[in-house]
Design a binder for these strands. Structure first.
Length: 154
DNA sequence: GCCAACGTTGGC
DNA sequence: GCCAACGTTGGC
């Protein structure tokens, strides 16, 4: 099993929204970056665990955990002209973008702030703490997951 | 294939 | 809202 971090803007869709969904499950759509897409399509597997990270908001940081309940399939929003994620160049035969379904697992009592994460000496490999951390889907190694989880679940 | 212009991300 | 850091686009 692998570990990931997915970014989201809580004003649009946050951990609370995931928790309140029917079946607490939601397609993670709208990823429009090739590197992130490749992770989603090729490496994110059923049962993988995911940190839900809140960005562009008051409380920036890791807000909780979700689990992958459906592996990559073509992101429907790319075919929908009404959607802001619509992509003219995508076709059913040649989909360009993919999504997975995630299910709510846990909301932390408090968001683990980015500021704290950056101060943790053990967390050095995570893309988040590196310069130009713009990937919306990124791998987290096992050790870093454990350390972050321990810190967040306190 | 280079690279300037442009758009987007995301912390602050 | 600012702006630095990236990614993407498109002319050549």
């Amino acid at each position: 099993m692998a570990y990931w971090l997915f970014k989201t803007e809580p004003d649009t869709f946050g951990i609370e929204d995931l928790k309140n969904r029917p079946a607490q499950t939601e397609p993670w759509d709208g990823v429009r970056n090739y590197q992130a897409r490749n992770f989603l399509r090729d490496q994110v597997k059923l049962g993988d665990h995911v940190f839900i990270y809140h960005s562009s908001c008051k409380l920036v940081g890791i807000a909780g955990i979700a689990e992958v309940v459906k592996e990559a399939y073509p992101d429907p929003s790319q075919f929908n002209p009404e959607s802001k994620y619509y992509d003219v160049k995508a076709t059913a035969e040649k989909p360009r973008w993919f999504c997975v379904d995630v299910k709510f697992k846990q909301q932390f009592k408090q968001v683990l702030p980015l500021k704290s994460i950056k101060q943790m000496p053990e967390i050095q490999h995570l893309g988040l703490v590196k310069k130009g951390h713009r990937l919306s889907i990124m791998p987290v190694d096992k050790d870093e997951w454990s350390i972050l989880y321990q810190q967040a679940a306190k």
